[in-house]
Design a protein around this nucleic acid. Structure first.
Lengths: 196, 196
DNA sequence: CCATTTACGGACCGAACGGTCCACAACCAA
DNA sequence: TTGGTTGTGGACCGTTCGGTCCGTAAATGG
């Protein structure tokens, strides 16, 4: 019972650092050493506090997901219209094209889906959950757009949300593949035209 | 000068096997052992014949790219219209959704862009070349579609080609993220509607 | 001040990694 | 048959991987 030596690191900060690293480098390419350095804790502390590499990674996925939802929610609340919200998100992804390499890192969820969602049931499940939440968030935005008239009601909100999730993934891919910002912005325009 | 012992393996077959493996597992997750087994040759032969892991990988990228172009060219030649060609490509990607995990592997070029194009200049260059070729092929198809009337001429062919490359990448991502075929087909419909 | 509890640093582990090297095998020309 | 040339199998290399373990540090309650 009761307390022993207190933690010498901030678990939240450490988790954040780990997430950033996984996000930039991917799972396989991130070594325990990398993590220890970035998280500023010792190996024993990492294993004690987070279990191991995979467990840590999954916690990073959860954190990323949660943060993403929260960001979307806030952004939607402060957006003039549903369409404007979506435009902001798409253009935000597009703007990564002019970032330096290490910041042109896409979306952790999609990267993970691409890297090894197929190989690990547990990870795949978390990716699926994340995608589902993304589509849900987009659907809410589309519905709001359909209500405020900024988005066509000719198409089902769920389908449009899926379409947008797909487009978002495509943009991330194009940017990672070296697409310049101008091209990506042109693509965004086409996508937005589809919604209007 | 002249000949010594003849090769005991088929270089083309071996390269093909390596490509399949990299395609399924990604670069980092594919070990030399995996490659030796799949290519059915010895370590020395691999180093002698292909240089090393990275060199081999790049040759796989080249092979993939070439094969992709060839496939597209043939398909376009036998397609009723530009739009039909694009529909075929998109639906083909969508159909991966019902494949078993190890065959739901997306596109080697895009996977590579996602995995580590940022980390290696040489690889990044090959990815860029591959993307450029893909966009070019799509542009040709769009132009044919605009000529035969199956695709709108309201939008620039180059922009539409970029949009399609993006959409293709998005579909691959969605499928990898566990999207079911029905949803993906609905997405394809929206994309096709944009073109018409 | 001591017992207990928890966290930490770092030595250590076996396995796997990509890569090198060399003795030997298999072919050709002379 | 022999010398030159190329390919092959496998031992071997140092490094790094993720992970374990233990002695010690730092806190608490009695």
């Amino acid at each position: 019972m009761t307390n022993g030596r207190p933690l010498q690191y901030d678990p939240d900060k450490a988790l954040h650092a780990a997430m950033q690293l996984f996000w930039s480098k991917g799972y396989e390419a991130t070594s325990m050493q990398d993590l220890l350095t970035a998280m500023e804790l010792s190996k024993s502390s990492l294993y004690q506090g987070f279990g191991g590499k995979k467990e840590l990674f999954i916690r990073c996925l959860e954190r990323y997901r949660t943060h993403m939802y929260e960001t979307f929610r806030q952004l939607l609340d402060t957006s003039k219209s549903g369409l404007k919200f979506i435009e902001t998100i798409l253009l935000n992804s597009a703007s990564e094209a002019r970032h330096p390499d290490h910041l042109r890192r896409g979306c952790l969820l999609m990267n993970t889906a691409s890297e090894f969602a197929q190989k690990d049931k547990q990870v795949a499940e978390h990716v699926t959950i994340g995608f589902k939440g993304l589509r849900k968030a987009l659907k809410v935005a589309v519905q709001r757009g359909q209500q405020d008239g900024s988005i066509t009601s000719d198409l089902d909100a769920g389908i449009l949300a899926n379409y947008l999730a797909c487009s978002l993934g495509g943009i991330k891919t194009v940017v990672k593949g070296g697409g310049d910002e101008k091209s990506v912005k042109e693509i965004v325009e086409v996508i937005l035209k589809t919604l209007a």
